[in-house]
């Protein structure tokens, strides 16, 4: 099976603006888009730049816009796309080269919500135990792989880079509702600001796009509720 692949390419050292490059690639229907991109890079044009690491949907490196939707290239099969495949870099982040975007603005927002366990109480003899129920509270948001698919699918983030974005809010949720953590009030104060949780307009693009199936919009609504209940 031959597929026609269009890739939005950009080399800042040579190109004044991005352009579309076309490739004909022999594939198997059960190949992943990542395999198709590998074929292009290894056999047709070695200058194609893309990120990938584990290639099994867990490191979150190969997020890109595939046929108009944010996905991981290693989790989409050619048979599900047909014989025309369009690949673009993620929207809302600066392009470094071809499909590689600058993730720093994304990680700056992630760091902003203090994504680490805060607990100054003296450690117990063995470990800080958590009941299965307490663990279940954060089960969904611990699944995040920081691929940036959700944040770069969010129209509020596209329109305004000051919004923390869904991924940072998911990270905040994961620690705020962790029974062992003690910095919930501090994080909720950060999220109560103008660029925080209330900038979410419940568009649901993040929830639709998440390759881990996290119910992101629901998590953000839980954060809004927690802020309102803690202030009101």
């Amino acid at each position: 099976m031959k597929v026609h692949v269009r890739i939005k390419r950009f080399n800042p050292e040579k190109d004044r603006r991005p352009y579309w490059a076309d490739y004909e690639v022999p594939t198997d229907p059960f190949d992943r888009v990542l395999d198709v991109l590998h074929y292009i890079k290894w056999n047709l044009d070695g200058t194609l730049a893309l990120r990938r690491s584990c290639a099994h949907g867990i490191c979150g490196s190969d997020a890109m816009l595939i046929n108009g939707r944010n996905r991981l290239a290693c989790k989409v099969l050619v048979k599900d796309l047909g014989n025309r495949i369009t690949v673009e870099p993620l929207r809302g982040l600066p392009v470094i080269k071809d499909l590689v975007v600058d993730m720093e603005p994304f990680f700056a927002k992630y760091r902003h919500v203090m994504p680490w366990l805060v607990n100054d109480e003296p450690p117990p003899a063995r470990e800080r135990l958590q009941s299965p129920e307490e663990r279940a509270r954060i089960d969904d948001t611990t699944k995040c792989i920081l691929c940036a698919v959700c944040t770069t699918a969010c129209p509020i983030f596209w329109g305004n880079g000051e919004f923390l974005g869904p991924a940072a809010l998911v990270a905040a949720h994961r620690f705020i509702f962790d029974s062992r953590d003690r910095a919930a009030a501090e994080r909720l104060a950060l999220l109560a600001e103008r660029s925080g949780a209330f900038k979410c307009r419940t568009v649901f693009n993040c929830t639709d796009a998440c390759p881990q199936g996290i119910e992101i919009t629901k998590a953000i609504q839980e954060l809004k509720r927690a802020i309102v209940l803690s202030r009101a």
Binding site: E104, A108, G161, E162, E193, R194, S195, F198, K199, K224
Partner: peptide, 15 residues
């Protein structure tokens, strides 16, 4: 990239 702004009133507007 993200400035901390002392603006905690957005939840009031939302509510």
């Amino acid at each position: 990239a993200t400035r901390v702004r002392p603006n905690g009133w957005e939840w009031v507007s939302w509510l």
